[in-house]
Design a protein around this nucleic acid. Structure first.
Lengths: 257, 257
DNA sequence: CCCTTTTCACCTAGGTGGTAAGAT
DNA sequence: ATCTTACCACCTAGGTGAAAAGGG
């Protein structure tokens, strides 16, 4: 029972080494990524009063809707394969800063534009966002506490995870450093790369010793995004409205699916 | 590790023998029970065609809303105590027939009335249900396949289960013998007793041998009910409307909480 | 007649970006 | 000027009993 460690010392456990993940809705992610994906972050978790008077005001307010924080759109969804159908796995996500910069949206030189390349001066200036772009504006804020989001079905058998698409639609983003609802904390105007992790639940007694062998991680570059408190690039706004069912109320009479 | 089996042979495992469950919303359950609780059962799961033409009709219909089957109201909720905080447990419910009879709602002698006792002839006959009552009407139909409903958070640690009230609000009832959505199948016009089970997830290799020691069951008599396809007792209907938030649209201007 | 099924208006619950006001 | 917050109308999604229609 203790044999079969994997290909070699430092290698991955055989329960995760063949795991593969395919990003769902890849063409939609790429469409957003070409424009420079933005994700809304809001505060609106339980609120920490800074002085007693604020506490009283808070207590008299109707109880906060259980977190007004926002989901990601597009939703991060993967199709898994290569797991051991009979073994237990935990699935989770985290978000890593893409660089150590803070950004601002505005007018200037040397920024990179909505297509994530240098802003092309040959583009027509019909839209405001054609003359604006993301510009580096100093060093990043101190990193927020590095939280993870466990898929709520965790733990589950490999067969269960592989049966259908795994969706992280319950994941919510916040810019509230004091959030106590377990949401992912990000700094606005900073860039992030979502990461996806498959963790084998090792039944062995001293499984901690093998922790580094028991997981496999996946990063899809097309899912990187800028955290914002309000959309900056109007083309991102329009694509969200066109593709997110919950924003149907803002669509014009365009009869496209 | 193999010691501490419990009080003796045939006894319960120490991980469940002290488990206790308190029914939540007990006064509401009792109010319904005094009138004779009724729970709606509907078909509306995936539908099995009996001949090919029906199949075609089905396929051309928009995909069935993921089960129009109905919840229970009141919702079955318990507060747990006496579990091992660090051990894993599975929580589940099933429904057992209260007798071997089929019932009908109507006018006759020898039935038991809305208060679950004999129908009192001294009650005023202002309402239809004052002259109607539940009457035994032959032997029960063959029992439906005995399904169980696992609480969707199962398995989880004892600490997690005891942290807050455990709610079975996702549980749905159907009278469709061919249901393949995993809902609880009941016969209409039959009486049932909900049962609640706490199952210790035994990590031992041959845990099957101890299966009978590793669970503890709870039955609350005030939660028994008659399965119906439409409400019969108008007082039950009015109490549902008054107490179920989703039925608020049918309330008159009564300003009571 | 009694029971079941279907459809409907009316709710709860919560996910959208717009908008205007507020903060720095 | 730029970024953030609070509130809003408008959606999706789904849980109610009423009422009418269907079936034995």
């Amino acid at each position: 029972g203790w044999a079969g460690e994997g290909p070699g010392a430092g290698g991955k456990n055989r329960h995760v080494c063949h795991a593969a993940a395919r990003l769902e809705m890849g063409s939609l992610w790429e469409e957003f990524n070409r424009l420079g994906t933005e994700m809304i972050v809001t505060k609106a978790g339980r609120w920490e009063p800074e002085w007693p008077g604020e506490l009283q005001r808070w207590e008299s307010t109707p109880f906060p809707s259980p977190s007004l924080c926002r989901r990601m759109f597009p939703t991060f969804q993967v199709k898994l394969s290569g797991l051991d159908p009979l073994a237990d796995y935990v699935l989770l996500m985290d978000f890593i800063p893409l660089d150590d910069k803070r950004y601002r949206w505005g007018w200037g030189n040397g920024g990179w534009g909505p297509d994530l390349g240098m802003l092309s001066p040959s583009l027509p200036c019909r839209y405001a966002f054609h003359s604006s772009s993301w510009l580096a504006a100093g060093r990043a804020e101190p990193a927020a506490p590095g939280r993870v989001h466990f898929h709520p079905d965790s733990p589950a058998k490999g067969a269960q995870w592989m049966r259908q698409i795994v969706s992280f639609d319950k994941l919510k983003l916040t810019n509230n450093l004091l959030d106590d609802n377990g949401h992912i904390i990000l700094n606005s105007m900073h860039r992030y790369q979502p990461r996806f992790h498959v963790v084998f639940v090792d039944p062995r007694r001293d499984s901690e010793r093998f922790a580094h062998q028991n997981f496999k991680s996946f990063s899809f570059p097309e899912t990187q995004f800028m955290a914002v408190t309000a959309y900056q690039n109007h083309r991102i706004t329009q694509l969200k409205i066109a593709s997110n069912p919950f924003a149907k109320g803002f669509r014009d009479g365009d009869p496209e699916p």
